[in-house]
Amino acid sequence: MGDAAAAQAPALLSARGVHKTYSFGAIPVEVLRGADLEVVQGEWVAVLGSSGSGKSTLLHVMGGLDKPDRGRGEICFQGAPIATTHGARLDAYRNRDIGFVFQFYHLLPELDVLENAMLPAMVGNWFPWLGTRADEARDSARALLESFGLGHRLTHRPAQLSGGERQRVAIARALANTPKVLLADEPTGNLDVKTGEGILDLLSERHARGLTVVMVTHDPAVAARADRVVKLTDGRVEVAFEIER
């Protein structure tokens, strides 16, 4: 997908002029200073940047886990701004429209692998007596985990897994409700190169099947797996280069 195509197709997810300021007591630190990013359907975008440049912050804001400074920037999904206040619509956005993968996995220690992977499905399905949907969720989570090579670890607790395995469970969880966009924050940041490759293969396979991916990394070699790489410097997004295939 070229620049021209990206410019023409309507953006699936976009950040427009996002400002984000953290204040340490009296001293405000402006991490994002008008960041713009457009992601079109089916694209894999890598956000490259040095540590502390605000990559995670941008991804959190795009995923509705954090909000821009009041009145300074907005996030649009499928053309409509996402709710920036708390509420059922924002919950539904987090639950169904996007999937989030964290650098540190963030699995629930008290749940086993299968339960962790079906958590978003359970969250979205508030009433247990709608039994068929629960069974469906269980089956699809199991199938996903099996395709990730975790079929034999379904009843294990996260603490019993390696880092790579945990990240695969986290990706399975992010995909549980078949979201439109996967937001991955340094999904390989905590893993060795070979394991990281495995995770990236997994993402790339999903991407090939049409999943839109926004991935944050500080590693150009990892960024190279994406269709398009943008760079975050001084709180703004610079279009860096496009990967030729």
Binding site: G63, H86, D91, R94, N95, F100, H106, V123, W126, R173
Partner: peptide
Amino acid sequence: TRDIGILRSVGASRAG
């Protein structure tokens, strides 16, 4: 608290 953050990030409501 961290668990609560995880739950919220996968779309659990505050009431939930």
